[in-house]
Write a protein that binds this DNA or RNA. Structure first.
Lengths: 99, 99
DNA sequence: CGGCATCCGCTAAGATACTG
DNA sequence: CAGTATCTTAGCGGATGCCG
């Protein structure tokens, strides 16, 4: 539980994982799939996911360079969790404005 | 989904909801159930939950004062989400140290 | 008992510019 | 293409002290 909270800190983390659940993505593909994310942020999150064994990074030494990010089995097991979040979010009858 | 992310920002938010899933709690009861949380943080999270309709706050004008926090039906529907998180967290075979 | 006020550190994230 | 570097902002959370 604590691990989950640390790993998926910040609004972008879960969105990135969600995107990767659709299959492996290149850096640019992720940027396109996640409007408004900065390369800085994207890199930062991906590096953490890598360090925690959620994602594997594969660099192909080509010209131009190509890098692929793919979920590990551990990362893929996050699917149900994100689905539960999504279910909850879309079940809200009357969005309460707050703050 | 976005709503979920905003609401449950920070490591304490989910833990507080989790505690309230066990039933209504007084302020002090929450503090005891959540070791190390500061009153500042607890108040801050509870106020946000209130503003977003996740929690209702009931103050009893007694001496000494008593305040009860109770999940709304919306808040209670978070149960499955937190369960999914917990399931994932406890399913980790070999915790990877990182960062 | 149940807070609020204030200050402060840490980190997620944005903006911008540049590189192998 | 896939980043890195630097600077800045904003919000969570801890610490301390006071109050009705």
């Amino acid at each position: 539980m604590a691990r989950f909270l640390v790993l998926l800190e910040g609004p972008w983390a879960t969105l990135i994982v969600r995107e990767l659940l659709h299959g492996p993505h290149r850096f640019t593909e992720l940027r396109e799939a996640l409007p408004r994310i900065s390369p800085h942020t994207l890199t930062s999150r991906l590096r953490r996911f890598e360090a925690h064994g959620l994602v594997v990074r594969t660099a192909y030494p080509e010209i131009p360079p190509r890098v692929e990010y793919r979920l590990t089995p551990l990362g893929e097991r996050l699917g149900p969790v994100l689905q539960a979040m999504s279910d909850w979010a879309t079940s809200i009858p009357d969005p309460v404005r707050g703050r």
